Computed example of a mutant assay.
Amino acid sequence: MYANSINKVSKLYKYTTSEVPMSKSLVEMFHSETSDKNKKKIIEPMCQMSSDIRIVFATTALGMGIDVVACHSIIPYGSPRSILDLVQEIGRVGRDNANSVAILLHNSIHLRSFNKEVMTVFTTNICRRQVLMSNFLKDTELEELAKRGNKHTCCDNCAKNCSCGGL
């Protein structure tokens, strides 16, 4: 689960571990102020199938260059600072080509602080993947992306409009 500040990451971690005390061995917190020793303690198990870590509350400090094994869900919480931050966050998921999900979690207070590009992804009624990737791809590449995707597994907006009957 990504949040855009150390304060938010700390609050999410503290809330989770206080509400579910037995989760302390399964939950970690990662941000720029995490010691190198703890960063290594978190990253190494995440790169192995046998990891006991189930949830990591993190800022974008947990980002590029880390190949997390079997990560199938990401939750950006609140307002990512930019489209690039959002892409880096959700880019951690599904690297093994297994079905994966990114759940963009926000409330109306978060919407006030979104930049325009990020706001468009959260508020659009059309394909969220297309809107997100329009910041990085040419029109011809976007058309190819649209042809390849299964509508019922693309995004919540596509799933609403999918009539294939698939799951």
Rank of each mutant, 00 (worst) to 15 (best):
residue 1 M to N: 06
residue 2 Y to V: 04
residue 2 Y to K: 01
residue 6 I to Y: 03
residue 7 N to E: 14
residue 7 N to K: 14
residue 8 K to I: 15
residue 9 V to L: 04
residue 10 S to M: 05
residue 12 L to Q: 08
residue 14 K to E: 12
residue 15 Y to D: 07
residue 16 T to F: 07
residue 17 T to H: 01
residue 19 E to G: 07
residue 20 V to Q: 09
residue 21 P to G: 03
residue 22 M to R: 11
residue 22 M to W: 11
residue 23 S to L: 15
residue 24 K to P: 01
residue 24 K to H: 06
residue 25 S to N: 13
residue 26 L to P: 00
residue 26 L to Y: 11
residue 27 V to D: 09
residue 28 E to H: 06
residue 29 M to G: 04
residue 29 M to N: 05
residue 32 S to C: 07
residue 32 S to V: 05
residue 32 S to H: 08
residue 34 T to R: 10
residue 38 N to H: 12
residue 38 N to A: 12
residue 39 K to D: 08
residue 39 K to L: 07
residue 40 K to W: 04
residue 40 K to N: 10
residue 41 K to G: 00
residue 42 I to E: 05
residue 43 I to F: 03
residue 43 I to Q: 03
residue 48 Q to V: 13
residue 48 Q to D: 15
residue 48 Q to R: 15
residue 55 I to Q: 02
residue 57 F to E: 10
residue 58 A to M: 09
residue 59 T to I: 08
residue 61 A to R: 03
residue 63 G to R: 02
residue 64 M to I: 13
residue 64 M to Y: 05
residue 64 M to N: 06
residue 64 M to Q: 14
residue 66 I to R: 01
residue 66 I to V: 15
residue 68 V to K: 00
residue 69 V to F: 01
residue 72 H to W: 00
residue 73 S to M: 12
residue 74 I to R: 01
residue 75 I to F: 09
residue 77 Y to T: 15
residue 79 S to F: 06
residue 79 S to H: 06
residue 80 P to F: 01
residue 80 P to W: 02
residue 82 S to D: 07
residue 83 I to H: 09
residue 83 I to D: 09
residue 86 L to M: 11
residue 89 E to G: 03
residue 90 I to W: 00
residue 91 G to E: 00
residue 93 V to G: 01
residue 94 G to L: 04
residue 94 G to V: 02
residue 94 G to Q: 02
residue 94 G to I: 01
residue 94 G to S: 02
residue 96 D to V: 12
residue 96 D to Y: 10
residue 105 L to M: 10
residue 105 L to A: 12
residue 106 H to L: 03
residue 107 N to G: 00
residue 109 I to N: 08
residue 109 I to D: 09
residue 111 L to F: 05
residue 112 R to G: 06
residue 119 M to S: 13
residue 119 M to D: 10
residue 119 M to Q: 12
residue 122 F to C: 03
residue 124 T to M: 09
residue 126 I to F: 09
residue 126 I to S: 14
residue 127 C to V: 12
residue 128 R to D: 06
residue 130 Q to Y: 14
residue 131 V to Q: 08
residue 132 L to S: 06
residue 132 L to T: 09
residue 133 M to F: 15
residue 135 N to V: 11
residue 136 F to G: 03
residue 136 F to Y: 15
residue 137 L to R: 10
residue 137 L to V: 11
residue 142 L to N: 04
residue 142 L to T: 05
residue 142 L to W: 04
residue 144 E to T: 14
residue 144 E to Q: 13
residue 145 L to P: 03
residue 145 L to N: 07
residue 148 R to L: 11
residue 149 G to M: 15
residue 149 G to Q: 14
residue 150 N to L: 14
residue 150 N to M: 13
residue 154 C to V: 09
residue 156 D to F: 03
residue 159 A to S: 11
residue 160 K to G: 00
residue 162 C to Q: 04
residue 163 S to C: 09
residue 163 S to N: 15
residue 165 G to N: 10
residue 165 G to I: 10
residue 166 G to H: 03
residue 166 G to Q: 07
residue 166 G to T: 01
residue 167 L to M: 06
